[in-house]
């Protein structure tokens, strides 16, 4: 029997007896960041392909979510900082080795773009406003300019939303002290999950049967990739060192087993995938059920990863 005890007394808040420094704020932000990245990515792709008229839900209506998601996400992120009045320090430097620095700068780019995107559609949301009069007349020029340059915004959004989506995972995988996070799959897995929840949101906002069907198909493919990546991640851990074996134990029999396999894998991925397949082969399934389940799965996944990851550590 081997036992390690701290005998001098040590009870650091949020660190002892086990690390629990990051809570719902971080999980929620990681979800919202991925969701915003997913929606904007698809909106940008649809725009670049010149199909805005056919897929209005993706470019015009689902894109109302990213500005809200990013502002809420940034707000909870900032209130989570224990030295929050120094948050501006993020923007006087760029640390190439720190994923969080990459994320801060990417958000600085994507957040304004998400607002500009919505603004560029202002005239189409409010058809009957008098756009030539009063204060509206003053912003009309800006709105028109943004609408004209939507393709340019889309070109910037494609790479930046991929960075945003992937960084939420790399942020965690860069911490080699947390064996559950420290695998190279996590970045791609979070990106896929973000794109999947984005596609699900577009289904909810879909304006036509054709649009809902296309995004159901995209979502189905993404769910398939996600299931593959989850399997791959767990296989990697099982083939890893002792600390990774112990980390995988949390999901395979440990305290997060039910949350992960029931709420993330079964209800969040497999079940919506089955419903979407049924729908594609002609059964009538209310389209918002799989979409909402995918979004729920995305939320729970972030919570499981943040909570479980902090329980894993190196033992010496």
């Amino acid at each position: 029997m081997k036992e390690e005890l701290i005998i001098s007394g040590r009870n650091l808040p949020h660190i002892d007896p086990h690390l629990n420094l990051w809570h719902w704020q971080i999980s929620l932000y990681l979800f919202l960041g991925g969701l915003a990245a997913g929606i904007l990515f698809f909106a940008a792709i649809v725009t670049l392909l010149g199909k805005e008229k056919e897929y209005e839900g993706a470019v015009k209506f689902a894109t109302l979510i990213p500005p809200i998601a990013l502002v809420v996400g940034l707000f909870v992120l900032i209130i989570d900082l224990s030295h929050m009045w120094y948050a501006w320090r993020l923007y006087v430097t760029f640390r190439i080795t720190s994923p969080m620095s990459w994320g801060a700068w990417t958000l600085m780019l994507v957040t304004p773009l998400s607002f500009f995107w919505v603004m560029s559609y202002m005239k189409e949301y409010f058809l009957y406003w008098r756009w030539k009069e009063g204060w509206l007349g003053k912003i009309e020029g800006i709105v028109d300019w943004l609408a004209k340059n939507r393709k340019l915004m889309a070109w910037i959004l494609v790479p930046s939303t991929i960075i945003l989506g992937i960084y939420t995972g790399i942020l965690l995988s860069a911490f080699n002290a947390r064996p559950l996070w420290n695998n190279s799959i996590l970045g791609v897995l979070f990106l896929t999950s973000g794109l999947s929840t984005g596609a699900a949101t577009i289904i909810l906002f879909g304006r036509s049967h054709k649009e809902r069907k296309l995004f159901s198909q995209i979502d189905l493919i993404l769910i398939g990739i996600e299931l593959f990546l989850i399997t791959h991640m767990i296989m990697g851990m099982l083939a890893g060192s002792q600390v990774q074996l112990e980390a995988s134990e949390l999901l395979l029999g440990g305290q997060f087993t039910v949350t992960f396999w029931v709420f993330v894998v079964m209800l969040g991925l497999v079940f919506p995938a089955i419903l979407e397949i049924f729908e594609l082969i002609g059964f009538r399934v209310p389209v918002y059920i799989p979409a909402l389940l995918v979004i729920m799965g995305g939320v729970v996944f972030r919570f499981v990863m943040i909570d479980a990851g902090q329980l894993t550590r190196f033992l010496y």
Binding site: L21, L81, H83, M84, Y86, A174
Partner: peptide, 9 residues
Amino acid sequence: IGCGACIES
């Protein structure tokens, strides 16, 4: 800024 990245790492 108190983000906690160093504590996690």
